[in-house]
Measured scan of single mutants.
Amino acid sequence: EPLWIRPDAPSRCTWQLGRPASESPHHHTAPAKSPKILPDILKKIGDTPMVRINKIGKKFGLKCELLAKCEFFNAGGSVKDRISLRMIEDAERDGTLKPGDTIIEPTSGNTGIGLALAAAVRGYRCIIVMPEKMSSEKVDVLRALGAEIVRTPTNARFDSPESHVGVAWRLKNEIPNSHILDQYRNASNPLAHYDTTADEILQQCDGKLDMLVASVGTGGTITGIARKLKEKCPGCRIIGVDPEGSILAEPEELNQTEQTTYEVEGIGYDFIPTVLDRTVVDKWFKSNDEEAFTFARMLIAQEGLLCGGSAGSTVAVAVKAAQELQEGQRCVVILPDSVRNYMTKFLSDRWMLQKGFLKEEDLTEKKPWWWHLRVQELGLSAPLTVLPTITCGHTIEILREKGFDQAPVVDEAGVILGMVTLGNMLSSLLAGKVQPSDQVGKVIYKQFKQIRLTDTLGRLSHILEMDHFALVVHEQIQYHSTGKSSQRQMVFGVVTAIDLLNFVAAQERDQK
């Protein structure tokens, strides 16, 4: 057995438009009618409502009807409940999964919650491996369901041993009777949507819809739904939504950006999952974080739909894509998950301010006199920076000697690579993860907040409520011999709460 199987392995699926269902090699399930009293909570997966979006479509000038398939009504709160249950049931049916076995899954959280929910009911041990950027709410729900959680670096490539995929496979090879159901490759993922989600949409719309818009992560949702719609409703256009920084969209030119990270969760990847059939997507749109969270908040405030950030991405694209539809036509959007997962993220004004998705003037509360002053007023001194090749031991000596707790790590040209902190280095040394002679590049981390000289002290204040420091950066445009230009970030300084307090105190003292 291989040590790991690539999540982007070539698909062996034989589905073709027009091929009889009787030739399918898979076990198919028909939607079942729910009894009045459910035998367990797993029976509350599927049969989610279709809700008309009344205000947002009109606000953006849509002539067509805009409908939302509300997947956050599933038992675990997301569309991923469907595939989690289906993968477990299919693994039980073919004898792969037996009582007492362990389920391991690399996930952005929602599939993990679905699997942990099913594992709690069915009696399996469950280990979820997820990147650090995923919300604390997801972690809390997983723990409450009895799952064990392993976190991995957000910026690790999918084929790196440190990625959530790599760590999951390492655990599988170490733990007896453990299984990775593997949402990236498992046919049960798109089949769950082909058999149930798509049929529900067709039934709820009486077979009449002209466009379907869905955000894409593993691709199982859009693949399964689109294949069924292509068979039953061939005139329906399928629109895929991919965040900026991901590479799922086609044509490839759409993916060209210097951005590699994004805040919206559960969609987009740096590889093409095996289950994603991009041939059934008629057109791709890219979405960005700001519009995703703005539209998610709009869905909550104006439509009462308590959905997550990827739902915002989907609707932001839908109001663009559906401009081509006329009166009497219908566009369906998939709202994948609930706001429950993001209470401390985009639902929080403070978080939105820190990330730059909300401006101070958007909030009406009274601010102190210094709130709208610029960061450049602080008069920061030149920063202490270190090269990635310097040793951890030497870096600790320098920081202690100069009285700093942290320093930016830059390359020879001064471009920011990340940050090192005294606390992080000492804990890594004590844990045996690094040696004093190791290069400081081994303990770089990139989960820090950046701020510009033109940003306000109010925004800085919000950042420092949650973080010990902020890195002050400025952009530099560099022209190359080819005539092309590129933008790079340079370090201007490091600012802490002490710097802000000293500035405010000094100004008030001078005024007296």
Results as ranks from 00 to 15, higher is better:
Glu253Phe: 08
Thr261Asp: 07
Glu361Leu: 09
Val491Trp: 10
Val415Trp: 11
Ser486Asp: 11
Val472Trp: 09
Gly414Ser: 13
Arg488His: 14
Lys484Pro: 14
Gly483Cys: 13
Leu387His: 01
Asp510Thr: 11
His372Asn: 10
Val434Asp: 14
Gly414Tyr: 08
Leu305Ala: 01
Leu426Cys: 12
Pro436Cys: 13
Leu471Lys: 04
His480Met: 09
Gly414Glu: 14
Thr391Phe: 12
Val386Ala: 10
Leu353Trp: 06
Ile477Arg: 10
Ser485Ala: 13
Gln511Tyr: 14
His480Val: 09
Val333Ala: 14
Thr421Ile: 11
Val317Met: 13
Ala301Phe: 12
Gln354Phe: 11
Cys392Tyr: 11
Val315Met: 09
Leu335Tyr: 04
Asp270Val: 04
Val443Leu: 07
Lys442Ile: 13
Ile300Pro: 06
Leu417Phe: 12
Ala506Thr: 11
Ser461Val: 13
Lys442Ala: 10
Glu361Ile: 08
Ala413Cys: 11
Gly266Leu: 03
Cys307Arg: 01
Gly441Trp: 06
Arg488Glu: 14
Pro436Gly: 11
Val409Ser: 04
Gln406Tyr: 07
Thr395Ser: 11
Ser481Pro: 01
Gly458Ser: 13
His468Cys: 01
Leu453Pro: 14
Pro408Arg: 01
Ile444Gly: 11
Glu327Trp: 01
Gly418Phe: 07
Gly483Asn: 01
Gln478Gly: 12
Val473Tyr: 12
Phe448Gly: 15
Asn341His: 01
Ile416Phe: 07
Ser486Pro: 05
Gly432Met: 05
Glu412Ala: 13
Ala321Val: 13
Val443His: 01
Leu430Tyr: 08
Met419His: 04
Lys512Tyr: 01
Glu465Ala: 07
Ile463Phe: 13
Val491Ser: 01
Ser246Ala: 15
Thr391Asp: 01
Leu306Phe: 08
Thr454Val: 14
Leu335Gly: 01
Leu384Tyr: 05
Met343Ala: 03
Lys367Glu: 12
Glu252Cys: 01
Gln439Arg: 08
Gln354Val: 05
Met490Cys: 10
Gly493Ser: 13
Pro383Ile: 09
Leu378Asp: 01
Asp242Thr: 01
Leu325Arg: 01
Leu254Pro: 01
Val440Trp: 04
Ser486Cys: 12
Thr454Phe: 09
Val280His: 01
Gly418Trp: 05
Glu324Asn: 15
Gly240Arg: 05
Ile444Cys: 12
Ala321Cys: 13
Thr454Trp: 14
Asn255Val: 05
Lys286Ser: 03
Pro336Lys: 01
Phe404Ala: 05
His394Pro: 11
Thr482Trp: 07
Phe492Val: 11
Met298Arg: 09
Val333Lys: 01
Phe293Asp: 01
Glu291Ser: 14
Gly393Ile: 11
Ile272Thr: 09
Thr314Glu: 01
Phe346Ile: 11
Glu265Ile: 01
Leu384Asn: 09
Glu244Tyr: 12
Glu327Val: 06
Gly328Ser: 11
Ala318Val: 03
Leu353Glu: 13
Val473Met: 12
Gln489Cys: 15
Glu465Lys: 15
Leu248Phe: 05
Gln354Tyr: 01
Leu299Trp: 01
Ala311Tyr: 10
Ile239Thr: 01
Leu387Ala: 08
Leu363Arg: 08
Val440Met: 13
Met298Tyr: 15
Ala301His: 07
Val410Ile: 14
Phe448Ser: 09
Leu426Gly: 11
Leu276Ser: 04
Glu377Ile: 09
Asp270Ser: 06
Glu291Ala: 15
Tyr479Asp: 06
Ser287Phe: 10
Gly240Tyr: 01
Glu258Leu: 09
Met490Glu: 15
Ala505Val: 13
Trp369Pro: 15
Gly432Glu: 08
Leu387Val: 08
Ile267Lys: 01
Val264Tyr: 01
Thr279Cys: 12
Phe503Arg: 15
Glu508Cys: 10
Gly414Leu: 08
Ser485Asp: 09
Leu299Phe: 01
Leu399Arg: 04
Asn288Gly: 15
Asn341Ser: 06
Thr421Lys: 09
Leu471Pro: 14
Arg278Asn: 06
Pro388Ser: 13
Thr395Met: 05
Ala301Cys: 15
Ile334Asn: 05
Leu399Thr: 06
Ala497Pro: 01
Ile247Thr: 12
Lys433Trp: 01
Asp405Asn: 01
Thr344Pro: 01
Val472Gly: 15
Gln329Cys: 11
Leu347Phe: 06
Phe293Met: 05
Lys355Ser: 08
Asp438Thr: 07
Arg278Gln: 05
Val375Leu: 10
Ser485Cys: 11
Gly268Gln: 03
Gln439Ile: 08
Gly483Lys: 15
Cys331Asp: 03
Asp510Gly: 10
